[in-house]
Simulated assay, not measured.
Amino acid sequence: MQYTLVLQWSADSLADYDALIAMEDALEGALPAAHGFVDGHDFGSGEMNIFVFTDDPLEAFRDAATYLGADPRWAEVRAAYRPTEGDGYVVVWPDTLQDFSVL
């Protein structure tokens, strides 16, 4: 897998953590192997992230939108990808997002 796609939300409560685990489990069970695999999550510093290793980050993002789009938290998602061995992120969503980082 050449890229790491990061799905990110603001977070600061146990309810946020529970939602993260539920979304990660849902995506892990639904993401086609041809589009990547869920490689875990992190939670802290006011944010929560799901990491997806993929050869096609845009297709993996479309899959995530399909499988997680009904979740009310999806409206707040920020997404970006980078080469697995790289540093700089390319923003996927939202279009107006200028900077992306994982704390």
Rank of each mutant, 00 (worst) to 15 (best):
Pro32Cys: 08
Asp71Arg: 05
Arg78Pro: 00
Val6Met: 12
Phe51Ser: 06
Leu7Phe: 04
Ala34Lys: 12
Gly36Leu: 03
Ser101Trp: 11
Thr54Met: 04
Leu5Cys: 03
Asp95Asn: 10
Met1Leu: 04
Gln8Lys: 15
Asp39Thr: 07
Leu20Ser: 11
Ala75Pro: 00
Trp9Thr: 08
Glu28Gln: 15
Glu59Arg: 11
Met23Gln: 15
Leu97Gln: 02
Ala64Met: 05
Met1Gly: 12
Glu28His: 12
Ala80Phe: 03
Ala30Tyr: 05
His35Ser: 14
Asp63Ser: 11
Asp95Cys: 03
Leu14Pro: 05
Glu59Asp: 07
Val102Leu: 08
Pro32His: 10
Gln2Met: 07
Phe37Cys: 13
Arg73Ser: 09
Ala70Ser: 14
Ala75Cys: 02
Leu58Tyr: 06
Tyr17Glu: 13
Thr66Gly: 03
Leu31Trp: 04
Glu24Gly: 05
Gly36Tyr: 06
Asp16Ser: 14
Glu47Val: 07
Thr4Tyr: 02
Ala33Phe: 07
Ile21Ala: 14
Ala22Thr: 14
Ala70Ile: 03
Leu5Val: 01
Phe51Gly: 05
Glu59Pro: 00
Val52Pro: 02
Gln98Leu: 14
Ser13Asn: 04
Ala60Asn: 01
Thr96Gln: 13
Ile21Gly: 05
Thr96Tyr: 12
Gln2Trp: 01
Trp9Asn: 11
Phe53Thr: 02
Asp18Ile: 07
Gly86Trp: 12
Leu31Lys: 07
Asp55Asn: 09
Ala65Val: 00
Asp99Ser: 13
Phe43Thr: 03
Asp71Phe: 06
Pro83Leu: 14
Ala60Gln: 01
Asp56Trp: 02
Thr84Gln: 13
Arg62Thr: 04
Asn49Glu: 09
Gly46His: 07
Ser10Thr: 09
Gly40Gln: 12
Arg62Ala: 13
Leu103Phe: 10
Asp18Arg: 15
Asn49Gly: 04
Glu85Ser: 11
Trp9Cys: 09
Asp95Trp: 05
Leu97Pro: 01
Gln8Ile: 02
Leu103Tyr: 10
Glu24Met: 15
Thr54Phe: 04
Ala75His: 05
Asp87Phe: 13
Leu7Ile: 03
Ala64Tyr: 03
Leu5Arg: 01
His41Lys: 12
Val52His: 02
Pro83Glu: 14
Gly46Met: 06
Trp93Cys: 11
Ala30Phe: 05
Leu5Pro: 01
Gln98Asn: 08
Pro72Tyr: 07
Ile21Leu: 15
Arg82Asp: 05
Gly44Pro: 11
Glu24Trp: 02
Asp18His: 13
Tyr17Val: 04
Met48Trp: 04
Phe51Ile: 02
Tyr17Cys: 09
Leu20Pro: 09
Thr54Asp: 03
Gly36Ala: 09
Tyr81Glu: 03
Ser45Lys: 12
Trp93Asn: 15
Met1Tyr: 02
Thr66Ser: 07
Tyr3Val: 00
Ile50Glu: 07
Phe51Thr: 03
Asp56Val: 01
Glu59Val: 04
Phe53Met: 09
Pro94Leu: 08
Arg73Met: 08
Arg78Asn: 12
Leu20Val: 08
Pro57Met: 01
Ala22Gly: 11
Glu85Thr: 06
Ala30Asp: 13
Asp39Trp: 03
Val91Asn: 13
Phe61Asn: 02
Gly69Ala: 08
Glu59Cys: 01
Asp16Thr: 08
Asp71Lys: 03
Gly36Arg: 05
Gly86Lys: 14
Tyr81Gln: 03
Val6Ala: 15
Gln8Phe: 06
Gln98His: 10
Ala30Arg: 15
